[in-house]
């Protein structure tokens, strides 16, 4: 078990190192001629207007929040799913009740038009 996680840790380091090495090599091979026009921020070819912030729509936050709720739901369902073969039928029904409550929440959000992109 520990050797498996050691493998994952080593793999993560290698997976971060390989693109970094490639980018570094390309950084050596490529020319470097910065000038102020090239380094200015791109705004469809005209001069930038205003600092780089935008009006943050609350809809982004709602999508991420609903995703968080369903993510936690699925995390709680993973042990139930793994133990499925050893569970009696009423335990399966308990899991189904869990899912149906969350489906109800999703239907509420749908009716209140909170999931539309506007």
């Amino acid at each position: 078990m520990l050797s498996e996680w050691l493998y994952v840790g080593v793999f993560f380091l290698i997976a971060m190192f390989l693109p970094a090495a490639a980018i570094f090599i390309a950084g050596i091979l490529a020319p470097k001629k910065p000038n102020p026009i090239k380094s200015s921020t791109y705004e469809c070819g005209i001069e930038t207007v205003g600092p780089a912030w935008i009006q943050f729509k609350a809809q982004y936050y709602i999508y991420t929040l609903v995703f968080l709720v369903f993510d936690v739901e699925v995390v709680l369902l993973f042990p139930w799913a793994v133990a499925y073969h050893q569970l009696p039928l009423f335990a399966v029904v308990e899991g189904v009740i869990f899912i149906l409550i969350l489906l109800g929440g999703l239907l509420y959000a749908w009716r209140k038009r909170a999931l539309e992109w506007l």
């Binding site: 709720v69 709680l76 793994v82 133990a83 569970l87 869990f98 409550i101």
Partner: peptide, 25 residues
């Protein structure tokens, strides 16, 4: 597997399990 069984077994943690879904909603 034991964790999963504990989550839905009536004399262990099934009530917090269902309450968790209500809390999430």
């Amino acid at each position: 597997v034991r964790f999963g069984q504990a989550l839905v077994s009536p004399d262990e943690f099934v009530v917090p399990f269902e309450v968790a879904s209500i809390l999430l909603v």
